[in-house]
Amino acid sequence: MNCREGCGACCIAPSISTPLPGMPNGKPAGERCLHLSVDYLCGLFGQPQRPAVCGEFKADIEVCGTDREEAINLIGWWEQMTAA
Rank of each mutant, 00 (worst) to 15 (best):
M1P: 13
M1N: 13
N2Y: 12
C3L: 13
R4F: 08
R4Y: 06
R4T: 06
E5G: 15
E5H: 15
E5T: 15
E5F: 15
E5L: 15
E5I: 15
G6A: 10
G6R: 09
G6L: 04
C7M: 09
C7Q: 06
C7P: 02
G8I: 03
A9G: 10
C10V: 01
C11K: 09
I12P: 02
A13C: 05
P14R: 01
P14E: 05
S15D: 14
S15P: 10
S17D: 15
S17P: 05
S17Q: 13
T18A: 12
T18W: 08
P19T: 10
L20K: 08
P21L: 07
P21R: 09
P21Y: 11
G22H: 05
M23V: 08
M23I: 11
P24S: 07
P24D: 11
P24M: 10
N25A: 13
N25D: 15
G26S: 04
G26Q: 07
K27G: 01
P28T: 09
P28L: 13
A29V: 02
A29K: 03
G30L: 05
E31R: 10
E31G: 02
E31N: 07
C33M: 06
C33I: 08
L34Y: 04
L34K: 08
H35V: 14
L36W: 07
L36P: 03
S37M: 09
V38T: 12
D39A: 14
D39T: 04
Y40N: 13
Y40E: 10
Y40W: 11
L41S: 05
L41I: 06
L41N: 04
C42L: 05
C42K: 06
G43S: 04
G43K: 06
F45A: 13
F45L: 14
F45G: 02
F45K: 15
G46M: 04
Q47Y: 04
P48F: 11
P48E: 12
Q49N: 03
R50P: 00
A52T: 15
A52P: 06
V53R: 03
V53N: 03
V53E: 14
C54M: 06
G55M: 03
G55P: 01
G55W: 03
E56T: 08
E56Y: 10
F57P: 05
F57M: 11
K58E: 15
K58L: 14
A59F: 14
A59Y: 09
A59I: 02
A59S: 14
D60K: 00
D60C: 01
D60A: 03
I61V: 15
E62P: 01
V63K: 01
G65K: 02
T66G: 11
T66H: 14
T66M: 11
D67S: 03
D67W: 00
D67F: 01
D67A: 01
E69G: 01
E69W: 02
E69T: 04
E70W: 01
E70H: 04
A71D: 02
A71R: 01
I72C: 04
N73Y: 00
N73M: 05
L74A: 05
G76K: 00
W78D: 04
E79C: 00
Q80E: 15
Q80A: 11
Q80I: 07
Q80V: 10
T82L: 13
T82E: 12
A83C: 07
A84L: 14
A84M: 07
A84V: 13
A84W: 11
A84P: 08
